[in-house]
Amino acid sequence: MTIQFHDETFRDDYTFHNSPEGIRRFPFPFDQDSYMYSVNLEPHAGGKAGSPFEKRFDVDEHYVAEMRDRAITLAEDPLRCQSLPHMELAGWDFLELVMVSKSEDYPELFMLNRDGDRWHWINRPLGIEQRFTFLDATTLPCGPMEYITRQTQGDHALLDQRDGNLWMDAGMVTSQADWSLDFDIGMNFFEWHAPVPKAHELGVFQRALKFLLNLQQGAPSRRLNWTMTVNPRLDTSPENYHKWGPEKRTVAPGNVGAKQYLRVELQTLWRLPRSNAIAFPIRCYLCSLEDLVTVPKWGRRLHRVLRDLPDELAEYKGFAVNRPVILDYLAPFDDGAPTSPGIFPD
């Protein structure tokens, strides 16, 4: 398998695009024709060959372009990557997890040689070669979490576990669904989820926290989350909301298929060994409506889910204002036929 890395952008001229294979492997998040919050965690222990669930850290055709976009965001605002002082050990744990996983899962792209604490890392797609001393941050160009997350798709949070709670104490967040690491860093599980409507009443966070506190090393979990984004934009941060906000109002019947994207987060959770912290990568996948409806099952189902979603959730997911246009576009792809269970295309 050779991945053809796209030369594409996630801002300005938005040349991002999915290949036909990229569309087929898109992690469509709805396994039935309706949606409500749930804990929906399952073991992250591989998955269908070629799917984003197969490898521990999925690398796809957007890898190089996404890392370039992250570098642009960080150059404008270094506060998108922060780590409270006690989280450096967790940063090393995470660096190890990613380097070991990627070099084993993609040996043609990544190479790791370890001689005790003397490590040698090669990242071929990004043209990086680095020799460094494990657990000695002065031998890397930046902190261990920043170093590895500049080379790993998705946002990443490192959660400290103490007092029967999880604390968002470090992260690299440049492609988030509207939350600010700089503001939320240091908060506990309930605090950083405080603005999410409805889920608290459903007890979702209580159950999820209970599960996560018992997460075991070597037994990672995953779940899917989703939202809607206008244009294939990774940096939908609150920091830059005044810059990208106006784009949300540019959706019209003539362009909605190309402009409106379903944004899916593949969230994985890993217990880290030395720090006992939890790594929480939030990997973002984008697919335009016009690409999604090329899979008939997804076209039917997406129409039903978005049509029946409570207003409060449509508001929180940020697409309430565009819902009528989106539904008008999707309706012709929903012939009322039943859909098969599960998320994969028929």
Partner: peptide, 25 residues
């Protein structure tokens, strides 16, 4: 910028969050 007042509060910063109220319009 014109900001709306959120109840979301950061203990670390000792401040509430203000977010642009007319970003989309």
């Amino acid at each position: 910028l014109t900001l709306f007042v959120r109840d979301h509060f950061s203990r670390r910063l000792g401040a509430f969050q203000g977010v642009c109220v007319d970003a989309e319009t």
